[in-house]
Design a protein around this nucleic acid. Structure first.
Length: 469
DNA sequence: CTATGGCACGGATT
DNA sequence: AATCCGTGCCATAG
């Protein structure tokens, strides 16, 4: 008897493991879809929408985290818990990073561009150019199809095309294009140095624009059959050197501090913030749940089981097993995520609070031994997850394991504060003085990753302070 | 001649 | 086993 039970349990155990692994590498959004699919397919599974704390299952009055769970363990520096708040899709540009619309007065912009084009425009093209510039929206895009414009201004289609080309190449580059993608492409054509990074960037914009917006670099690398590192470099290049909304560009003295991440599609899977208790030393880490509510095996289904007709009994049993397995796997996933985050936030506290420079070197293998799981488990737990930091930034969880981030951050600062463009070799020695030993070639790579142009091309950029001359 | 990017290699990481 | 990362070497642009 026992033998039989044992044998029937063994495949269950491996199934358990396999499914836990499969669930572990899903992001919150993916997990939500997965759960919904399971709910639809399996009547034995039930979603209880009652608001309870996912940690202790005590009822919650409002939507806030369970305070008994969030507040216990006063002495620790971080509290990690599963949050009853759900992470769903969010509006394109709602909270988080307020996008300040800096409405460049359309007239000024138009005048500025017209001035530049004066030399290249045939006299009879001037009204056409003016018409186009006046039709741009706040972002600098042209919503009207060329044909309509040609009709309205009594010009030819080719004429419109020619003027559009000129406008797109004028000072805020990318004006008059159909959208962010086209604007970026137009700007890309103007980059002085056409190297591999630029051509990858171009392909990324052309073929995998959606993935780029979602930061799915791995998928892009796969689709384009390019090294992942090159994809990252190209993405960084786009981010720092191009502007998806041409009319919002400041070509003034102040860099563009508000451009970094205008495209945020999701809430993070995890959010770390300051604990609301009086001292602000304690961090609070919420692991968002994918759905509002919690899953369990439907008790009614279980009760009904003995009454099942013989031909259904088999099916029902199977569904029941499947449902309880699924619930267990989810619990396991939660457990692993919680332990992982405990290690991460306590080990990388400085990084979270003070920025990239303070990321300590950390490997997945070390974390794995620390929490006593296989390293591939850690790998899965970390992948495809994003985490929101107290300062509002949303970064991939995998960045906690980026070995070169702190050095790259330092290089960025060196370049930002340099009085004259420093060569890579000079940067090497500056870093050396600070005790950071890296090869010249490595500095070049990091520079590329950050989208920083080489010293020679860093000269007089961004000095167009005012449109007037 | 100098600064920099491409390629490729070996060791570490996943 | 596959992939990533730091580096050295070499070609090339300026």
């Amino acid at each position: 008897m026992l033998q039989i039970q044992d044998q029937s349990l063994r495949p269950l155990a491996t199934a358990h493991l396999a499914q836990t692994m499969a669930l572990l590498c899903l992001s919150n959004m993916e997990l939500r879809d997965r759960i919904q699919a399971e709910l639809a397919a399996n009547p034995a599974l039930e979603l209880v929408e009652e608001r309870v704390c996912p940690n202790c299952h005590r009822p919650l009055s409002n939507g806030s985290p369970c305070h008994t769970c969030a507040q216990r363990r006063e002495e620790t520096e971080a509290v990690v818990f599963l949050s009853p708040r759900t992470a769903g899709a969010r509006g394109l540009e709602s909270d988080g990073s307020p996008i300040e619309r800096e409405p460049v007065a359309p007239l000024d912009l138009a005048a500025h561009v017209l001035e530049q084009l004066a030399a290249d425009l045939e006299p009879e093209e001037r009204p056409l150019a003016a018409y186009i510039l006046a039709s741009l929206d706040d972002d600098g895009f042209l919503r009207e199809p060329s044909a309509t414009i040609a009709q309205a201004t009594r010009s030819t289609l080719t004429g419109v095309g020619r003027v559009l080309q000129l406008i797109a190449r004028a000072d805020p580059p990318g004006l008059g294009t159909a959208g962010p993608r086209e604007a970026l492409l137009a700007q890309l054509d103007l980059v002085p140095m056409q190297d591999g990074r630029v051509s990858i960037a171009r392909r990324m914009l052309r073929e995998t624009f959606g993935e780029l917006g979602r930061r799915e670099y791995a998928r892009i690398a796969q689709k384009l059959d390019v090294n992942l590192r090159h994809v990252r470099e190209a993405a960084a290049f786009i981010r720092t050197n191009l502007n998806p909304y041409p009319a919002r560009a400041y070509w003034g003295s102040g860099r563009q501090p508000q451009t970094p991440d205008p495209i945020i599609y999701h809430t993070p899977d995890i959010q770390v913030s300051f604990h609301p208790s009086s001292d602000d030393k304690t961090l609070m880490v919420e692991i968002f749940s994918p759905l509002a509510g919690w899953l369990r095996v439907n008790p009614l289904f279980r009760q009904a089981l003995p009454d099942a007709s013989p031909d259904h009994a088999e099916d029902w049993n199977q569904q029941l097993d499947r449902a309880s397995l699924f619930v267990k796997c989810l619990q396991q996933r939660n457990n692993t995520m919680r332990r992982l985050m405990e290690i991460l936030v306590s080990g990388q506290r400085q990084f979270i609070l003070q920025g990239d420079r303070f990321l300590h070197p950390l490997t997945r293998a070390r974390v794995a031994t620390e929490i006593g799981v296989h390293e591939s488990t850690v790998s899965r737990a970390v992948s495809h997850k994003s985490i929101g930091l107290p300062d509002g930034r949303i970064i991939p969880l995998a960045r906690f394991f980026d070995r070169s981030l702190s050095v790259r951050d330092r290089i960025k600062e060196i370049v930002d504060t340099e009085s004259r463009p420093l060569t890579d070799d000079e940067i090497v020695s500056v870093l050396g003085d600070e005790g950071i030993q890296v090869a010249r070639r490595t500095v070049a790579k990091y520079r590329a990753m950050e989208g920083i142009l080489p010293a020679r091309l860093r000269h007089g950029r961004r000095e167009r302070a005012s449109p007037r001359r």
